[in-house]
């Protein structure tokens, strides 16, 4: 009602119903056009391309081309790294967040920890790889210290920064903070009354955690796990800067394929990218579904 009055008072504004409706929609046209052109269509191009022959016909050959041992191995090692770093990120991030929220540490620690997590979760990519090379690389700070001071040679123990575990440990640098950022509000959401109600009903602290707190947190934990998984799976820059092309993981393979068609089949590149969308898509669908569940509970 009042909008109408105001519009009429202005005079120059579009009067009448017939111009009003399209006007509403005109406001989102630039955004819709941008998203369509630079997000939706490029993605669709990849998805469709994955099912197309070079001359435009439908085929499943590209996708089935993924099921060769070297590509499957790349997916497998990618999934393993992503999953391991997600699990460890969840566990360590949870432990740190729980220590700060529930462990009786001074409240003053919280703000700085969350700020630092915000920074660290964004400190990914090339510089992160350099930081870890300078720390755990062959002449890195920790490597040298362990060798010269404690006589422990990481290389003899089978550790190499350019390997599965090297990459996983590096990924943890952005995985743990992301976990802290997401799980801290969830831990805050555990009401004091639940603990008190459980305790006055006779439950021990362990029973409270097993029967109440953990089940309540579980959707957030699993959801964050899925998110961290997708986060690691799509990470390209860190992997390339750290390992060059020595580690056969999907983002590196796709990067090389886009650069120079190393697979010798342009449409196999589409399929490779399509596979990435599918994996991260599934992980995020799980995240969204579980988050909706936990929000319903906590309403």
């Amino acid at each position: 009602m009042s909008t109408q009055t105001a519009t009429q008072a202005k005079g120059a504004a579009p009067p009448g119903q017939f111009r009003r409706l399209p006007m509403h929609w005109l406001g989102v046209v630039p955004f819709a056009a941008f998203v369509l052109l630079f997000l939706i269509l490029p993605t669709m191009k990849i998805v469709i391309g994955a099912f197309q022959t070079p001359d435009g016909g439908f085929t499943l050959a590209n996708v089935s081309g993924l099921f060769t041992s070297s590509i499957l191995a790349a997916y497998w090692i990618s999934i393993k790294i992503s999953f391991t770093s997600a699990i460890l990120g969840c566990l360590i991030g949870f432990a740190m967040a729980a220590a700060v929220v529930l462990g009786g540490l001074p409240r003053a620690i919280r703000g700085p920890l969350l700020t630092f997590s915000g920074v660290a979760s964004n400190f990914a990519g090339v510089p992160l790889a350099f930081a870890f090379l300078a720390t755990l690389g062959p002449v890195g700070l920790v490597t040298v210290f362990l060798r010269s001071e404690l006589g422990i040679d990481l290389r003899l123990l089978g550790f190499n920064i350019l390997s599965f575990w090297g990459l996983t440990i590096t990924y943890l640098f952005f995985q743990i903070p992301l976990m802290i950022l997401i799980i801290t509000p969830a831990l805050d959401g555990l009401k004091r009354e639940w603990r008190e109600a459980a305790s006055i009903l006779g439950a021990t602290n362990a029973q409270y955690w097993r029967l109440v707190a953990f089940p309540i947190l579980l959707p957030s934990l699993l959801g964050t796990l899925a998110l961290l998984f997708a986060n690691a799976f799509g990470a390209v820059a860190t992997a390339i800067a750290l390992t060059g092309s020595s580690l056969n993981i999907v983002p590196i393979l796709l990067f090389a394929q886009i650069r120079g068609d190393v697979l010798g089949d342009p449409h196999l590149g589409y399929a490779l990218a399509f596979g990435m969308i599918v994996v991260t898509g599934i992980a995020n669908a799980i995240y969204i579904w579980l988050r909706a569940r936990s929000e319903r509970w906590l309403k």
């Binding site: 009401k191 006055i200 029967l211 309540i216 509970w297």
Partner: peptide, 26 residues
């Protein structure tokens, strides 16, 4: 001792039966 809280404090992850059964279960 039994206690009822101002904000209900029912366990959100359990249905009515399990909530009431909690004290007996533990």
């Amino acid at each position: 001792i039994g206690m009822v809280f101002q904000a209900y404090a029912l366990f959100p992850n359990m249905n009515v039966f399990d909530n009431v059964a909690f004290g007996l279960k533990v």
